[in-house]
């Protein structure tokens, strides 16, 4: 086991899925479910002669933050880009299902149970979506996760953490958008279509995928913070992500609706106003939108230390 205190000081970006999972919850409280010793690798990769991983690239388990049981899902980008297949998808869905069932059981046993004694789900995304080697099963798993989120609504809060190398794209981009709260670091990226695909569709003049600064200001944490798509922008340390989740752990599940960006008729109306703005502005660059939000020097703001960015950034409102 990695040393928990050392993990806290680590870069979230540099941490493996298991390190993120362990570091997120209180020291010594994490129990991994379907962990590597269970050897539940993908049979489909075996059939294709592809390298397998004992945990199929996703770490799932349960720990505690304070009194709160925290069910954790953590994707490993170094294994096939964190892509989701049958086993990994089943692990995600089952983790959410277990959290919901546990919440119901605890509430039935004690209707007056304190909010901070009820489960919460935290998902550390690092994925491009469906694993092509088992694409059909992976796609179906995405639909199951989305369904599980809706079943968890009002019962168990679901928090997305995005700050790993691969970002969160493809079908998992929808999935992350459908969580209650999104926490990102400036190195996190969230979207649907990855930069290479946009370049392929629109041409290099329109979108140069090799331009890292452009890629980050289109889908990166700072941009998503200004757009209101990520609720909290935290430092790139395991401890910073953990501190944000710990703060959220104090809230009752009903309070999580306020953080959502989609999931109700009213929120859809609000998003439609944003889309109207997109149609009106036809922005050539994310910085155009930053300016519209009231940030007069977007480039300066983009380059500022993240602490200054948090203090100065004006967030878009429609």
């Amino acid at each position: 086991m990695p040393n928990w205190s050392k993990l806290q000081t680590r870069s979230f970006l540099e941490s493996s899925a298991r390190e993120r999972a362990l570091g997120l919850v209180d020291e010594g409280t994490f129990t991994e479910l379907a962990g590597p010793f269970d050897r539940m690798s993908s049979p489909h990769l075996v059939a294709l002669g592809e390298a397998v991983e004992f945990d199929d690239g996703v770490v799932t388990g349960v720990g505690r933050i304070g009194k709160r049981p925290v069910f954790v899902i953590s994707q490993e980008g170094r294994f096939i880009g964190g892509a989701v297949g049958e086993v990994g998808g089943a692990k995600m869905v089952t983790t959410i299902d277990l959290a919901v069932a546990f919440a119901e059981e605890l509430r039935a046993a004690n209707p007056k149970i304190a909010a901070d004694e009820l489960p919460l789900v935290a998902i550390s995304f690092e994925t491009g979506g469906v694993r092509l080697h088992e694409s059909n099963a992976g796609l179906l798993a995405h639909a199951e996760v989305m369904d599980a989120f809706q079943r968890a609504r009002g019962k168990v809060p679901v928090v997305a953490l995005i700050g790993s190398r691969i970002g969160c794209f493809g079908g998992m981009g929808f999935v992350a958008a459908a969580t209650d709260v999104i926490v990102m670091s400036e190195f996190g990226r969230l979207g649907l279509t990855g930069p290479e695909v946009i370049e392929e569709e629109m041409g290099k003049d329109e979108f140069d995928a090799s331009n890292r600064a452009l890629v980050y200001r289109t889908t990166g944490g700072r941009h998503k913070y200004i757009m209101g798509d990520c609720n909290f922008l935290v430092d790139d340390r395991v401890a910073a992500f953990r501190a944000q989740v710990a703060e959220l752990c104090r809230l009752p599940v009903a309070d999580f609706e306020q953080f959502r960006r989609i999931g109700s008729a009213a929120l859809v109306e609000k998003q439609m106003r944003l889309v109207a703005l997109a149609a009106e502005m036809q922005p050539k660059d994310a910085y155009d939108v930053w300016r519209r939000a009231g940030n007069n020097d977007p480039a300066g703001l983009g380059d500022a230390p993240v602490d200054d960015f948090r203090k100065q950034a004006q967030r878009l409102s429609v």
Binding site: F174, A177, L190, G191, T193, K224, Q271, V289
Partner: peptide, 11 residues
């Protein structure tokens, strides 16, 4: 991507 297509389909 700037405005978040992922939200529309997620919604």
């Amino acid at each position: 991507e700037i405005f978040g297509m992922n939200k529309a389909t997620g919604a």
